[in-house]
């Protein structure tokens, strides 16, 4: 499956990475080249059974005890005020893409 310029624009938008038009062709070539090596996977028959490890996951007790912060949140933050992290105001503060 060759990658198109539109594909690159689309994934760059999803990944919130600004990609200049001038970079697109190079990325198309690189990603298509890498993905060409992945085509071998498509041919593999993987119908055989998958992993059956019921490993499970450790659970924590519902007791306070978070990892403490050795320095204030403000120290590493690009912009904070009154304890809030600040970002440029959302154009649509009801942006529909977020879920409840």
């Amino acid at each position: 499956m060759a990658v198109s310029r539109d594909d690159v624009r689309h994934v760059a938008a999803l990944a919130r990475i600004g990609v200049a038009e001038a970079q697109l062709d190079a990325l198309v070539t690189e990603l298509s080249g890498i993905l060409a090596h992945m085509e071998v996977l498509v041919q593999v028959d993987t119908t055989a059974g998958a992993a059956d490890e019921p490993a499970g996951m450790p659970l924590a007790a519902d007791e306070p005890g978070s990892v403490p912060l050795a320095r204030a949140r403000e120290d590493g933050a690009p912009k904070m005020r009154d304890g809030f992290f600040l970002v440029p105001r959302l154009a649509t503060h009801d942006d529909g893409e977020r879920s409840a």
Binding site: V3, D7, V11, A15, V19, L27, E30, I34
Partner: peptide, 12 residues
């Protein structure tokens, strides 16, 4: 950047 774009693509 290349790997993030590749990873985004294969999950999309």
């Amino acid at each position: 950047t290349r790997r993030i774009l590749l990873g985004t693509y294969v999950l999309s």
